[in-house]
């Protein structure tokens, strides 16, 4: 079984995440800086009015908004090496640790895709350029989501290992065993 970092590298290759994507993402940094605060505000407004998610942000919305702004700027910072993975991995682990169900980060990512698409559409008139830039943004958002999902999967295996005493390799064997 490859490590999460190896999976990250493999997924970037699989998605053809190239220097062109990196250039596209770096090129939209200004747009994200300009529209990011609105996207963040909209996102936290929805979280705060949803009972299931409000409890996770209560009393610390402003601090979380700063963290979120930093996360968004890292999306377009142009560096997607091991440090980028580690940063996303820590975020995933934090979501797991505080007990957010995995479908909430998925839903939130959908909101961010929409919000950031709107921001790009407001600033990029050429539809071909918009499509290309947004394509690169979607790739990195999906990679981020994949890392968060990996965090959840790892945590579930860790919990089972801890509780049952089963070796990780045994659990992996059972998971991958053919059903027939």
């Amino acid at each position: 079984m490859p490590t999460p970092l190896e999976i990250y590298s493999n997924i970037k290759t699989f998605l053809s995440f190239t220097d062109r994507d990196i250039a596209n993402l770096s090129a939209i940094r200004g747009i994200v800086e300009k529209h990011g605060p609105r996207v963040t505000d909209d996102f936290y407004a929805v979280i705060a009015r949803t009972p299931e998610t409000a409890k996770f942000v209560e009393g610390r919305v402003e601090a979380l908004k700063k963290t979120h702004a930093k996360w968004m700027l890292e999306l377009v910072a142009g560096d997607y090496g091991d440090a980028y993975f580690e940063s996303r991995w820590r975020i995933g682990k934090t979501h797991v640790r505080i007990g957010i169900d995995p479908f909430w980060p998925e839903s939130v990512m959908s909101m961010l895709r929409s919000g950031l698409h709107l921001a790009l559409a407001q600033e990029i008139a050429n539809p071909v350029e918009l499509s290309e830039k947004y394509g690169s943004l979607v790739k990195i958002l999906d990679v981020d989501m994949m890392i968060v999902n990996l965090s959840y999967a790892e945590d579930r295996i860790d919990r089972l290992t801890e509780f049952t005493g089963m070796k990780r390799a045994l659990l992996e064997n059972l998971i991958h065993m053919r059903k027939d």
Binding site: T164, M166, K167, L170, L174, R178
Partner: peptide
């Protein structure tokens, strides 16, 4: 064999714990 091996290893791990 593979299923039996998986089950036996699981049971022994759980038994130990």
């Amino acid at each position: 064999e593979a299923r039996v091996a998986g089950m036996a290893a699981t049971l022994l791990s759980l038994g130990t714990r």
